[in-house]
């Protein structure tokens, strides 16, 4: 919104103008510069990706890894990226919701603080450490579960056997990602739940709601946009997470089975292949990065659209 400092009808003689104080002016410029800087960086990254990716799009299909052109190369990676992130979300979202509600509405105050601190601490663990934990501890321990899934639910293509003997599968990578995004979603959900106005919670209680009914009537609807933002931030991290996936997953070609080795994500593929790439291979990897960039952008826009759709009911007004 712009406002004019000039009065609509100038009084005759001397034009009057509100005095501009230097502090206001400097601060306004500083914030504007910071805002513009973000846009420049974003545009710079996008321009770099597009410029470096174009050769991969134009190249002779035979030159691309796999020999069938860029899109044949990239779609299994897109699939792997989305599936790994999706598995992570399915596991992490209900868990984060439960932890956040426990901290905000059920736990005694002292315990809630401690628990919140521990969850925040999870976010401070470097992803390479998660990767080590995934390989050394998680993969051997979940192997049996994946074998069970392959034996009993093998008729579903996602669980088709034989299960990986090392346990380093998409499912395992998804579980590691779930643990990694848990603190983000929990922290945001907890904050929005704590901000539910006491007024609305008491309104529900005064109608004779039990604590769970009060949460369903007042807390969850109020926290819904925040929860969606939290989930999308988690999804963003899961989509882009590189190190943990690169370490945990035993990569390979496309397969529907999530319990055998195979598949790869875009970020892990770039990390694993980039050091030894040259020429058109580098362009191909950068083009894959561009695809990841577009996917993440699309996810964020989708999240904003979901949040904005019911804005009138959001409780913000």
């Amino acid at each position: 919104m712009t406002t004019s400092t000039e009065p609509a009808t100038k009084p005759p003689g001397r034009p009057r103008r509100a005095k501009v104080r230097p502090g206001d002016r400097n601060f306004s410029w500083a914030t504007r510069a910071a805002g513009v800087l973000i846009l420049i960086v974003l545009a710079g990254v996008a321009a770099f990706l597009v410029r470096e990716a174009i050769p991969a799009f134009r190249a002779d299909p035979a030159e691309i890894d796999g020999g069938e052109g860029f899109f044949a190369y990239v779609w299994p990676l897109v699939f792997g990226t989305l599936v790994a992130a999706f598995i992570a979300l399915i596991i992490a979202t209900p868990l984060a919701l439960g932890i956040a509600l426990f901290i905000s509405h059920y736990a005694p105050r002292r315990m809630a603080q401690g628990l919140g601190y521990v969850v925040d601490l999870l976010a401070a663990i470097p992803s390479v450490v998660y990767g080590l934990w995934g390989i050394q501890w998680l993969a051997p321990n979940v192997r049996g579960t994946w074998e069970w899934l392959a034996d009993n639910l093998g008729f579903i293509p996602l669980f088709a056997g034989p299960a990986s003997a090392t346990g380093r599968t998409m499912m395992t990578a998804g579980v590691v990602l779930a643990v990694m995004i848990l603190p983000i979603i929990t922290a945001i959900a907890r904050e929005v739940f704590l901000q539910t106005p006491t007024l609305h919670q008491e309104a529900a209680l005064a109608l004779g709601a039990t604590r769970w009914e009060m949460i369903r009537m007042a807390v969850l609807p109020f926290g819904r946009p925040g929860l969606i933002s939290g989930v999308m931030l988690g999804l963003g991290r899961a989509l882009g997470e590189t190190m943990a996936v690169a370490m945990v997953l035993s990569t390979g070609g496309f397969t529907w089975s999530m319990v055998s080795s195979g598949n790869n994500t875009i970020a892990a593929e770039i990390a694993l292949d980039f050091p030894e790439s040259a020429g058109i291979e580098t362009n191909t990897l950068i083009a894959a990065g561009l695809v990841l960039f577009v996917i993440t952008l699309a996810v964020n826009m989708l999240a904003r659209w979901i949040v904005a759709r019911r804005e009138a009911f959001s409780g913000a007004n």
């Binding site: 007024l199 309104a203 005064a206 109020f222 959001s314 913000a316």
Partner: peptide
């Protein structure tokens, strides 16, 4: 039933 000091209809409901 109770009515509070500040009007508190549930904002997320019609």
């Amino acid at each position: 039933g109770m009515v509070f000091q500040r009007p508190n209809p549930f904002p997320t409901m019609s």
